[in-house]
Simulated scan of single mutants.
Amino acid sequence: MPISTALDQLHASVKQNRWFWYFTVFNRIALAAGFLPSGFTKIMGERFTSLSVNHPMGHYLEALHKTGFYYPFIGVLQMTAAFFLLIPRMATLGALIYFPIILNIFVLSVAVRFDGSLLTSPLMVLANLYLLCWDYDKLKYIFPFNRLPEQPARPMLPATFRTFPVRFFAGVAATVLLIACLLLTGFDLKPRNHTRDCLTQCAGSDNPQACQAFCDCIHQQGRSLDDCLARYHQAGPSKQ
């Protein structure tokens, strides 16, 4: 069976299940709610967080805030994507606009180990990917294994199947737990939002003094994350 036919059949079966439709609506609303406040803040020209400029994410956001019309432009795109997601006929375009923005936020959050979006951003990326897969019938012709139909496609039947997809939602729950474990515990040190929060990591550190120096390096000296991490690793475990 050609891969295009197999994907069409899988997509059709998913679209006819009411539980998947509920999950799609939930993702659209959740993603829209994630971008509306931040987009509005940028349009109003206000700084997005109260992080110190010494913090890696705070330094980035401060620079972004001073980029002139580029800062509110991002807010306009965020709010446009969010509103489009809430309009059924525009939801596909909304998901397409949303994806590069949230992917950038995810990569940035991991790069600077920012607690504020370290967990939420990858989940939002996955939710966005789900919405793009939901609209596979509209986007499939960008793939090389699909050809334009000779006749117009038949309209999709309304969601009718009520069988609860246990394996799918179990996979969703397992994925959320796995991402939480990897991102929340997978880093030896994180800058955290403030010095006092950063210092809470030092009690269980292999070298508490080096950990304290790391926090000072970030929040007081304003050095780069890579530089402060390199200093911490060079210190090595403490000798008792």
Rank of each mutant, 00 (worst) to 15 (best):
P2S: 13
I3C: 10
S4P: 05
T5L: 10
L7E: 06
L10G: 14
Q16S: 14
Q16F: 03
N17G: 09
W19F: 12
W21I: 09
T24P: 01
N27V: 04
A30Q: 08
A32L: 05
A33P: 02
L36S: 00
P37G: 07
S38E: 02
F40S: 02
K42D: 00
K42L: 00
F48N: 03
L51H: 02
N54A: 00
N54E: 02
N54L: 01
H55G: 02
H55S: 03
H55E: 05
M57T: 06
G58K: 00
G58P: 04
Y60A: 08
Y60E: 04
E62F: 04
E62R: 07
A63V: 06
H65C: 00
H65R: 01
G68L: 09
G68Q: 07
F69S: 11
Y71L: 02
Y71R: 00
F73A: 14
F73R: 00
F73C: 11
G75R: 00
G75N: 01
L77S: 04
M79E: 05
T80N: 07
T80Q: 04
T80G: 14
F83S: 08
F84D: 02
L85V: 09
I87C: 11
P88E: 10
G94M: 05
L96W: 10
F99Y: 14
F99P: 02
P100I: 07
I101V: 13
I102F: 01
I105L: 10
L108V: 11
V112W: 01
F114P: 00
D115T: 06
D115M: 07
G116L: 07
L118R: 03
L119F: 14
A127R: 01
L129K: 08
L129T: 12
L131I: 12
D135M: 04
Y136W: 15
D137M: 06
L139W: 10
L139Q: 09
Y141C: 06
F143M: 13
L148C: 07
P149Y: 10
Q151A: 14
P155Q: 12
M156L: 14
L157C: 05
P158Q: 11
A159P: 05
T160A: 13
R162S: 10
T163V: 14
F164S: 09
R167D: 12
F169L: 08
F169R: 10
F169G: 05
F169S: 10
A170N: 08
G171F: 10
V176G: 02
L178D: 09
I179V: 15
A180P: 01
C181M: 15
L182W: 13
L183N: 09
L183K: 07
L183M: 13
L184G: 12
T185Q: 13
D188V: 13
K190D: 04
P191V: 03
R192G: 02
N193S: 13
N193W: 03
C198R: 02
Q201H: 04
C202Q: 07
C202M: 02
A203Q: 12
G204T: 11
D206V: 05
D206Q: 14
Q212E: 15
A213G: 05
C215V: 04
Q220S: 08
S224N: 05
D226F: 05
C228T: 03
A230E: 14
R231D: 10
Q234A: 14
G236F: 03
K239G: 02
Q240V: 13
